[in-house]
Write a protein that binds this DNA or RNA. Structure first.
Lengths: 116, 116
DNA sequence: TCATGTATAATATAAGCAGGTTATGCATAA
DNA sequence: TTATGCATAACCTGCTTATATTATACATGA
């Protein structure tokens, strides 16, 4: 699929918040999750993800703490903050509308009464 | 809704192609269509629209011709080209997947088997 | 009647910014 | 050398904000 990354723009934050709404996670795992869920039709590169995480940390929508894997390698875990939870909740309410609207528009099945 | 313009990014081209897939139209009318269909939950400003139209003209996804109007400036009509039609058709096939994937991700209802 | 203001219709572009892409680098472990 | 894991710089695209111009209709007041 061409340009698949462009579709995610505007949704990146909410994808991250959604994952962290389910369980604490770390960058590398989140890319794997998105890869596995999206099966190539949506793309969120590591560069995009890590900059998003940094951004959201600064905005205090997420917090982070360090952990290790079994082999002893470092991981940086992220968890959602109350602020992040509020934002996610609010977005999910809007999402239904956004989805329907986008569907109507790109599907071409909208009604519009033309003048003159 | 905050930042509603950001959601459209990546879909702008296909929204325009979809409208022109239904009937020839002009910039001002297209903004009215999008406003009326989206009812404030998606936004495509005139500036964004006109730059998109220019871009798509250059890429030959759409073509244009001038029309007259009783009131106000002359209208510039746009129609979809064969190239644009192909792109729209191809996108609509992908859209189902994109929609499902986005829904799973932002809805948090995805399955992922975590390793240790 | 003329001038002025304002609302609507319609198109267009410049400057700036946000965030994604491409590319690259580094460390550890199997 | 492949997988795990994090991170950043430079670049590019496209949206936002702001502004300008053309054109008609209509109201209002001098």
């Amino acid at each position: 699929m061409t340009n698949s990354g462009e579709y995610v723009r505007g949704f990146t934050n909410y994808i991250i918040l959604s994952i962290l709404g389910n369980f604490d996670s770390y960058g590398y795992e989140m890319t794997k999750i998105i890869d596995s869920v999206s099966k190539q039709n949506i793309q969120l590169t590591e560069a995009a993800l890590y900059t998003a995480l940094k951004r959201m940390l600064a905005e205090e929508k997420i917090a982070s703490y360090s952990g290790k894997n079994k082999k002893g390698m470092n991981r940086r875990y992220y968890r959602i903050t109350p602020k992040g939870k509020r934002e996610l909740k609010s977005f999910r309410k809007d999402w239904v509308m956004i989805e329907n609207t986008l569907s109507s528009l790109v599907g071409g099945d909208f009604k519009y009464i033309r003048e003159n």
